[in-house]
Amino acid sequence: MSGENARLSLAEFHGLPVVDHPRASEGAVERASLPEAGAVAWRVGVVASRETVWEELWGEEFARFLATVDAARVRALVVGTWDSYYDTPSTEFLEAVVVARERLPSLRALFVGDIPEAPGPTWITHGRISELLAAFPALEELAFRSGEELEFAPLRHERLRRLAVESAGLPAAVVRGVGESEFPALTQLELWLGEASCGGDASVEDLAPILSGERLPALRRLGLCNSQIPDEICAALASAPVVAGLEELDLSMGLLTDQGAAALLGGQPLTHLRRLDLTHNYLSEAMRARLREALEPAGVEVRTEAGDAVDWVRFIAVGE
């Protein structure tokens, strides 16, 4: 996935089409004119612009949303720009959604930070995003784009099935917070680790609780993506207990070289996987062929499309 594609607005979330809730500036809204509340994923946001005066408040738009849809039937919510300066911390958003939790008893999926105006994930600022999981014990899917000031406190959540963090620089403390959490129902975990220049300072040691699989008994898809250290991650995955239970392993969007791919092939068997995604890599043609020859006869879908380099400089897929 390219950086540009990563910033496009969501068209679908939680298996539902994403629909923008009309903003106040668009005039009065009649409930009868809107889709059925549970049939779509609702995106609530304001216009982001550094050239205009801050005229819209996300909290006011969210209050209008709760008043004009049947909030009790809303299944999926997409949080767009929360003020006219897209890099302002999401404190207001977090507080508003948590306060409204009793009005959203059917909410099962939440995507935070669908902000195409932002230059990249690093510009999207959050606080302790794990508070959303504590507030919504029935939530099944949580995904967000983020950069600076993100926090994730360890917790136990019984119902969460998918957790995805899209970042150009995921702090090691956040990776450790996820790894120290208990998610007995989680089947999909995707972390975009990013690069050190954007705050992505997680090491293989920080990933150890995830790679052990002890707190993730139901995990079937693991993504450790957009990383500067995929070769080191592959060396750890070669003997990581979590791999045996996986159906999909995603190491795409990073700086993978032949060294990392060789470590994967030289470790525990991968023939039980349905898919191995190495898209955006820096492998030789010989190594790509070796991967396909080793895994495709067993029915594994192997994706090995190359990444881009400029003047021999290699890049992760989504930076800044």
Results as ranks from 00 to 15, higher is better:
residue 222 L to Y: 10
residue 98 V to Q: 12
residue 205 E to R: 14
residue 290 R to H: 12
residue 47 V to E: 15
residue 29 V to D: 10
residue 92 E to S: 07
residue 231 D to L: 09
residue 98 V to E: 08
residue 127 G to I: 03
residue 303 R to Q: 09
residue 294 A to S: 13
residue 18 V to L: 00
residue 232 E to I: 00
residue 46 V to F: 11
residue 191 L to A: 05
residue 119 P to M: 00
residue 116 P to E: 05
residue 62 F to I: 08
residue 18 V to W: 00
residue 242 V to I: 14
residue 137 P to F: 02
residue 263 A to T: 10
residue 304 T to N: 01
residue 220 R to Y: 01
residue 274 R to K: 15
residue 242 V to D: 11
residue 231 D to G: 10
residue 251 L to E: 03
residue 131 E to S: 15
residue 307 G to C: 02
residue 307 G to E: 01
residue 309 A to V: 07
residue 223 G to H: 08
residue 303 R to M: 08
residue 285 E to Y: 05
residue 230 P to H: 00
residue 138 A to C: 04
residue 41 A to L: 09
residue 68 T to F: 10
residue 114 D to T: 00
residue 256 L to W: 03
residue 297 P to M: 03
residue 129 I to L: 11
residue 164 A to R: 09
residue 164 A to G: 05
residue 243 V to S: 03
residue 127 G to D: 09
residue 209 P to H: 04
residue 102 E to C: 09
residue 145 R to H: 10
residue 76 A to Q: 03
residue 282 Y to E: 01
residue 303 R to V: 07
residue 35 P to W: 04
residue 143 A to M: 12
residue 211 L to V: 12
residue 100 A to Y: 12
residue 103 R to K: 15
residue 274 R to N: 11
residue 199 G to H: 09
residue 242 V to G: 14
residue 160 L to A: 02
residue 168 A to G: 14
residue 163 L to C: 01
residue 9 S to N: 03
residue 104 L to R: 07
residue 228 Q to G: 15
residue 299 G to Y: 11
residue 129 I to Q: 01
residue 84 S to P: 09
residue 210 I to Q: 06
residue 57 L to G: 12
residue 68 T to D: 15
residue 62 F to W: 13
residue 102 E to G: 10
residue 247 E to Q: 14
residue 9 S to T: 07
residue 15 G to W: 06
residue 197 S to M: 14
residue 116 P to C: 03
residue 7 R to H: 03
residue 176 R to I: 04
residue 248 E to K: 07
residue 42 W to H: 13
